[in-house]
């Protein structure tokens, strides 16, 4: 009993450490003064200012536009590529997978500067399109790694069974292969979207001052000093993540249950 209590206290302290800073941010986002230490009454003025700030509005637009476009393109290219890679074998597959791992394992800062060098070397002006290309590049590997296990689990005869029953290769792909690997595709797409929304380092090196995402905006605001608008932004982002993660968790736990039912 005593041990159990100690365990719970220990976990509580760890969670306090993890959540206290976030909670302080959230609480002070409603504080009616610029102070981060004294409570001056409840206000929503930072939220209103946040939504009226043209820089933040623009950054939000770019963040979502880039996340949507890059995750969509990465999901399509990655899924098709995964099917192609799956039918490779021997050393070629190992080589392709190892190169595919580079953006995941390489430090973000190296990925960021290497792409920046490429764009400048190729005389492409940094901005929206370079940032989009960079995001697609680091998103595809995650999509491939989410889809490949599903392809491996796939009964290799499934495709043949569809052909056997009269389906053309294209019909078999859309009616059989795609639905069977859909969980992997959805996971990959969600992962790509979140990584894109969250990215700072790679975006930082591959855009111009006119086109910034939220992370870059937060970085430059935090460098110049404390700003209660960031607190308001934190609260909104925290809640968004909370909701998104809930959806993903429900989805995966449903999948686990289905697996168990087999």
């Amino acid at each position: 009993m005593v041990k159990n209590a100690i365990n719970r206290i220990y976990l509580f302290i760890i969670f306090l450490f993890l959540y206290a800073p976030i909670m302080v941010l959230i609480v002070f986002s409603f504080n009616n003064s610029k102070s981060r230490s004294h409570w001056n009454g409840f206000t929503l003025r930072w939220y209103i200012e946040l939504f009226q700030d043209p820089v933040i509005k623009k950054a939000l637009f770019y963040t979502i536009a880039i996340a949507l476009l890059s995750s969509l393109i990465a999901t399509i290219v990655g899924t098709i590529a995964a099917i192609g890679i799956h039918s490779f074998n021997d050393w070629k597959k190992t080589l392709i997978l190892n190169i595919n791992y580079i953006p995941i394992l390489n430090p973000d800062i190296v990925t960021g500067v290497s792409l920046m060098i490429l764009f400048i070397f190729a005389r492409i002006k940094l901005g929206f399109w370079t940032m989009l290309l960079a995001h697609i590049t680091f998103n595809i590997p995650y999509v491939i790694l989410s889809v490949l296990p599903k392809l491996k689990q796939l009964n290799s005869h499934l495709y043949e069974a569809a052909l056997d029953l009269g389906a053309t290769p294209l019909y078999a792909f859309f009616k059989v292969i795609l639905p069977e690997i859909r969980p992997g595709i959805v996971t990959g797409a969600l992962l790509a979207f979140t990584l894109s929304v969250d990215d700072f380092v790679i975006s930082f090196f591959n855009t111009s001052s006119g086109v910034t995402n939220l992370s870059i905006t937060i970085f430059s605001m935090a460098r110049t000093g404390i700003n209660p608008k960031i607190n308001a932004l934190s609260t909104i982002m925290f809640l968004t993540i909370l909701i998104l993660l809930f959806i993903v968790n429900i989805r995966t736990s449903k999948e686990v249950k289905e697996e168990k039912a087999k």
């Binding site: 005869h157 043949e160 069974a161 052909l163 029953l165 389906a167 059989v176 069977e180």
Partner: peptide
């Protein structure tokens, strides 16, 4: 295969 009047029962069933 999809043009043959032959059908197959696969080893591990290959159900969808």
């Amino acid at each position: 295969p999809y043009k043959r009047r032959v059908n197959t029962v696969f080893q591990r069933y290959a159900l969808f």
